[in-house]
Design a protein around this nucleic acid. Structure first.
Length: 104
DNA sequence: TTTATGGCTGTCA
DNA sequence: ATGACAGCCATAA
């Protein structure tokens, strides 16, 4: 059994459409925990592999992928995003103007 | 209970 | 543009 906030966070992440990205802060806010972006990171970190959550669509406020314990994960994440049609610039950053998820 | 550590973020030098 | 700092607070030990 997981804590309610985690479920809340997972729910928000699941709403991110394909080909779009959201920041940790944004997810935190939508989940009802403004300013707690870090907790979002923890929630995603604790996420099991078989869980149906597109964790790769969540990136940091700079438009970059957040490095995790596993150094390979960044590489994987980037591959997943590109597979969804998201482009990276020379700095390996995502354009929020184009891909930022705008929930209504 | 106290400490240390984080897949973050905004501000300032 | 890059680096340092300070808040947010849940987990693990």
């Amino acid at each position: 059994m997981v804590s309610p906030r985690y479920n809340r966070i997972y729910g928000v992440v699941r709403r991110i459409p394909r080909g779009r990205v959201a920041t940790y802060g944004q997810v935190a806010e939508l989940a009802g925990f403004p300013g707690q972006a870090r907790q979002v990171g923890y929630a995603l970190r604790a996420l099991s592999d078989d869980a149906n959550v597109p964790w790769h669509r969540v990136i940091n406020a700079r438009g970059e992928l957040s490095p995790r314990a596993e150094s390979t994960s960044v590489h994987v994440q980037r591959a997943l995003l590109r597979a969804e049609g998201i482009r990276f610039d020379a700095e390996q950053r995502v354009s929020f103007v184009k891909y930022r998820w705008k929930p209504r």
